[in-house]
Amino acid sequence: MNAITSYFKDIFHAIKTLLTGMRVTGYYFSHARKEIITQQYPENRDTLKMFDRFRGIVTLTHDENNEHACTGCSACEIACPNGTIEIISDREEDPETGKKKKIIDKFIYHYSMCTLCNLCIISCPTDAIKMDPSFEYATFDRKDLTMILNKPGSKIRKDVK
């Protein structure tokens, strides 16, 4: 007798738990319009705003006079775990003091090797480089991922020591 009651109890319990599960999915199905969480990416480009701190790519900031703050100290090159940054520097005579001064010739950035760990940014003593939240950099050619960050003709800003 006990076995029979437990047999039916099992069945009713099973049906109850199954219906509970179906209630949850049924709720979301009937409220799909409100609850859908996926975004349609290329369509929502205009409204898509990344967080300020989002690490998309390393950039060398230039101001309106086409001047940057990189002294070519290569602290970022040392801090980088993957050899992403290569700085080719030159020495130039300062017209005012007459001293030889280090300036950057090319700030080469291998985006394909970058793990976006932010170590170069925090190691930079002059805050010359920063992370940009843009992220659409897929290309068909790997060569395009090697970038020269300093713009042509750019100079180091005067006040940077």
Binding site: F51, R53, F54, R55, L116, C117, N118, L119
Partner: peptide
């Protein structure tokens, strides 16, 4: 992930 992204700058490899 959004919380991470806002504070740390990345979603998975936050460092």
């Amino acid at each position: 992930n959004d919380i991470f992204e806002e504070t740390c700058g990345a979603r998975l490899t936050v460092n």
